[in-house]
Write a protein that binds this DNA or RNA. Structure first.
Lengths: 363, 363
DNA sequence: TCCCCGAAATGAATCGTTTAAACTTCTGCG
DNA sequence: CGCAGAAGTTTAAACGATTCATTTCGGGGA
């Protein structure tokens, strides 16, 4: 006869030698208590006699037991994870938002499941599906496509969902956005108020919402200063927001309508290229030409001349998104809404030493 | 009497209205088959009669059923997730690695659980604990502290673990690294071979492994060219690898030992500051002074003069880490090893227009 | 001596899925 | 006509933790 005091299981011969995971049952056996008591030590320590509790804790320590989130979740707990779907992990705009979200969630024991779609709709669908299978408690998403029906579908299936940097089409979704019109307005107003006569707006395709909005803002600024937008703002369109296109645009800025003494770029990469292009053409910044960018990426401040730029509260966007998610999943009376942030103009050398000494408002 | 054909459950009054999750059982009822058959449709479609299969698929579609990873995992499946623990989400070095890891894993249906520790040991411990509870199938980690005992402990508890950008102390862990000594050697050799006489090495504290290694490499390069390292390499130590310190170091480069005609910086931020500082002091780059950086961050190529820099294969690091993880979790005969990458020198304008026209090798 | 009470611990049901084994039809063949 | 085997489907036992109704035990009061 064999000793049948306990089931000692040795790793199956075929399996990798990876030590079988310790379960709560083994802890219970070792501590000579029931499974329920071990669970109580874990979740409700106060109702366990202290001697027992110590014995169980010792058993947990010596076995290296770690509780399984899956089992916990299955029994009705929550998954303690939040999905984050962005266009590109290596884009600082998104990673700053991720940092914000993580900051807001980490103290509550959440973990972030990060997915980058690289703007592929198929990938977005794939990841949203996986996140739903994982039963994440909420999803922060920067949608890859215009059509949001599958995102709304998620939300309607009960998964708290927040759009990042994109307004919701209806009241069925929360969203966190930055006012790009206002950003464009800030940049243009700064230049025009500062005495610049004519601003070249180096902009990407109007099909990109951000580009269209920033343009509207620039024109609004002109109008508010009593200027004719068509005269004060000269648009120069480039196919992509890269430094190369910025550099190429420098020549066009000088060649088009005369009298341009300021350039407003749709992002910092364009502005960086523009600075390079202008330097190559012997144009001095900011004396002969003021330059402002958009995004305030890390290196904007490091350039010489340091680049004036419009800063977006990226970290705060992430925090706000996370908080909306938590609210939606905890508060039954939650109503969907849009949280809108204001961008901020960071003035630096590339636009400040105005050629006209005194600020002149309006005409 | 009530109709007892099926249990229709309406949301509990206290609960949020979030529609109860659809389970496989409800799908089975709707399609009038057993639970097992639904499961077969999901996992083993070929053994199900096609009429039945269609009926089940229709039921899945109309109920919006999504399978629960938690239950799947509990039943013995895998969690289909990989943990990634890095120092900082907003640092492009890490995000490029994350991109690589995601690229290598996404086709296998994995999802990345991303954690940034901000170099806090407590946070690292916290996250490693959570990842273990989530039963991730592997962990990629850039450790925050010198002591790796808790990381090794993870590995010994059967969780495949790979160190990123850090060599393992023993054979108990896999690791993926870049040869920083070689990187320092590449940079210094480039300058010295190109005719530069004396290189200032603007370096961070030796306590940072990368800094120490790059220094060793630079000195090795001098030695291999038959030069005396103490004469050919002049070290200038700065407290932190920032652009401000780079700018400040420019003056020190000119003030210290005469004859310095090249600067090698421990990273690109320092180099950027150095370029600014030199410009401010009226020193022309590369004619009077060559400058090389390290990391080849995105904007290095965009500067003027474009910055020569040492590129690390960040994306490939991530890919390799992920592949090691997969190998470790699938192949029982896996043995831990270090995968070491070679950095690559990217030569650009900041170091090329040598003041000595012809390349002279050795002394 | 008996009863009751509270504190502590137990045991069983449960969550949603997978899977091996069992069962039911049905077909074809001797 | 009987039966083997295939094809299709069902059944039931896991997986690991939580929860709650129940049991056990020791002590205090009558």
């Amino acid at each position: 006869m064999s000793t049948s005091t306990g089931q000692r299981q040795r790793p199956l011969p075929g399996r990798p030698v990876a030590s079988r995971r310790v379960t709560i049952r083994e802890v219970a056996e070792l501590a000579a208590v029931s499974i329920g008591t071990v669970s109580n030590v874990l979740n409700n320590p106060s109702i366990v006699a202290s001697a027992t509790r110590d014995r169980v804790l010792a058993a947990i320590g010596s076995t290296g037991f770690v509780r399984s989130t899956a089992a916990h979740q299955l029994r009705g707990g929550r998954s303690r994870s939040i999905g984050v779907v962005i266009l590109d992990v290596s884009n600082p705009f998104f990673t700053e938002m991720v940092r914000g979200a993580e900051h807001a969630l980490r103290d509550d024991g959440y973990v972030l499941v990060l997915c980058s779609t690289d703007e592929s709709v198929a990938r977005e669908r794939h990841y949203l599906g996986l996140l739903e299978e994982h039963r994440v408690e909420g999803i922060l998403v920067t949608p890859a496509e215009r059509d949001l029906s599958h995102v709304s579908a998620l939300a309607s299936r009960g998964i708290p969902t927040v759009l990042l940097d994109r307004a919701a089409p209806g009241p069925s979704l929360c969203s966190v956005t930055v006012d790009d019109v206002r950003g464009g307005e800030l940049a243009a107003a700064h230049l025009l108020v500062d005495g610049r006569k004519r601003v070249a707006l180096v902009n990407g395709p109007q099909s990109i919402r951000q580009c269209a909005d920033r343009r509207r803002g620039a024109r609004r600024a002109a109008r508010q200063l009593g200027l004719d937008p068509d005269r004060a703002i000269v648009e120069i369109s480039v196919p992509a927001l890269t430094d190369e296109h910025g550099e190429l645009a420098a020549r066009r800025v000088l060649d088009t309508t005369a009298g341009v003494d300021a350039v407003m770029c749709a992002n910092d990469l364009l502005a960086l290229g523009m600075l390079r292009g202008l330097a190559g053409l012997g144009v001095s910044v900011p004396e002969e030409m003021a330059v402002v960018g958009y995004d305030d990426v890390a290196f904007a401040a490091m350039l010489s001349p340091a680049l004036t730029s419009v800063r977006q509260p990226k970290f705060e966007l992430g925090v706000a998104g996370a908080e909306l998610l938590l609210e939606e999943s905890r508060d039954p009376r939650h109503v969907h809404r849009e949280v809108r942030f204001e961008p901020e103009l960071v003035v630096r050398a590339s636009s400040t030493a105005a050629k006209v000494p005194k600020i002149r408002r309006s005409r």
